[in-house]
């Protein structure tokens, strides 16, 4: 009690009572700064404790917003409490603030645009901290959403700062905003392989993988009878949190399981029709043997090569690149 009394005496001493400008004394200014510093300290303590208390209870994004809001709210209250010590007429500030606001608005149009975009982004929440998003051509993991800009990191670990105005006005693709997402593979097998069996194998693999979702169920079907083989399309849903891990592991598992069952991913191949006799109107179809596909591929590199024309019509000579006769 005596300390408070002594303090008040100190502030009433002639040094502190000396006016600096207008009625504002050094004592007033000291009070102003003391209240401001106290407000900052209280704001820091409150925001730190809020951070600790809500860390495991609230999403990181919301936690940042709450702690920042608490900090600035306490600081603003402290500032407004301290302001009368400077004998500032708040109504005058409001009028001046309006005019200054217009000037600043024109002068710092982009800054204000970023600020307003930032506020809207915080409320609309098209992205959250930790999300994997594509903003225009930049693919980033969001690290912080600030009032003027959004900070992210590319997959190569490069720091990216994007002004909020750009984010607000451009198309955002958020890869993990939804709880689950789908990915697909096109698995090609040879024509002589059993597609129904391949589908069975793939479905069993998907069933065994915990994070390939039961619902929505996977979809495995023959999608295309392509030039070199049968294309089996595999569509799988996975939790967004782990979809990339699943996507990168499942394809190899499918490949290994199909190969274990004797199926192969086909090489590019061609079927060659050869006229056995000049008079034979029904040409014989020759299907390349599996083990000779690579050889046949060489034969068919340049079917109209002069060497073929010179030789017997039924014989096939390997084409090994241009020779001297080509140059002629």
């Amino acid at each position: 009690m005596s300390d408070i009394f002594n303090t008040s005496i100190i502030f009433k001493s002639s040094i502190f009572a000396t006016p600096v400008y207008g009625p504002t004394t050094i004592g007033n200014m000291l009070w102003f700064f003391i209240i401001l510093v106290l407000a900052v300290i209280i704001a820091k303590i409150v925001s730190l404790n809020l951070n600790r208390f809500l860390k495991d209870r609230v999403r990181k994004n919301d936690l940042n917003l709450i702690t920042k809001a608490a900090y600035w709210l306490i600081f603003s209250i402290g500032f407004l409490t301290a302001l009368p010590n400077l004998h500032v007429d708040l109504s005058g500030i409001l009028v001046a603030g309006g005019i200054v606001g217009i000037i600043i608005g024109f002068a710092a149009q982009s800054v204000v645009a970023n600020l307003i975009s930032g506020i809207f982004l915080i409320f609309e929440q098209p992205l959250k901290i930790g999300d994997n998003v594509l903003i225009e051509d930049t693919l980033i993991i969001v690290e912080d959403i600030r009032i003027f800009s959004t900070i992210g990191k590319t997959f190569e670990g490069i720091y990216v700062r994007i002004p909020n105005e750009k984010i607000f006005t451009t198309t955002i693709t958020n890869y993990v905003a939804n709880t689950a997402r789908r990915f697909e593979y096109a698995v090609e097998i040879r024509y002589q392989d059993d597609a129904a069996r391949a589908i069975q194998i793939i479905e069993a693999l998907i069933e065994d993988e915990p994070f390939c979702l039961k619902k929505p169920g996977p979809s495995v079907f023959v999608d295309e009878l392509a030039a070199d083989g049968v294309i089996i399309k595999t569509r799988i849903w996975a939790p967004s949190e782990v979809w990339w891990d699943i996507r990168t592991t499942m394809l190899w598992k499918i490949k290994c399981a199909l190969e274990k069952d004797g199926m192969e991913i086909p090489f590019p191949q061609r079927t060659i029709w050869v006229n056995l006799d000049d008079g034979d109107s029904t040409p014989k179809k020759t299907i390349p043997e599996r083990n000779h596909v690579a050889e046949v591929r060489i034969h068919t590199c340049k079917p109209s090569h002069p060497a073929l024309e010179k030789s017997h019509p039924n014989s096939i000579t390997a084409y090994n690149g241009p020779d001297e006769s080509d140059k002629e």
Binding site: T179, A180, R181, E207, P210, K214
Partner: peptide, 14 residues
Amino acid sequence: QKYSLYGPSGGGVI
């Protein structure tokens, strides 16, 4: 182990 999605992919829960 097996996981599923209850509700739509936009607002449902794993």
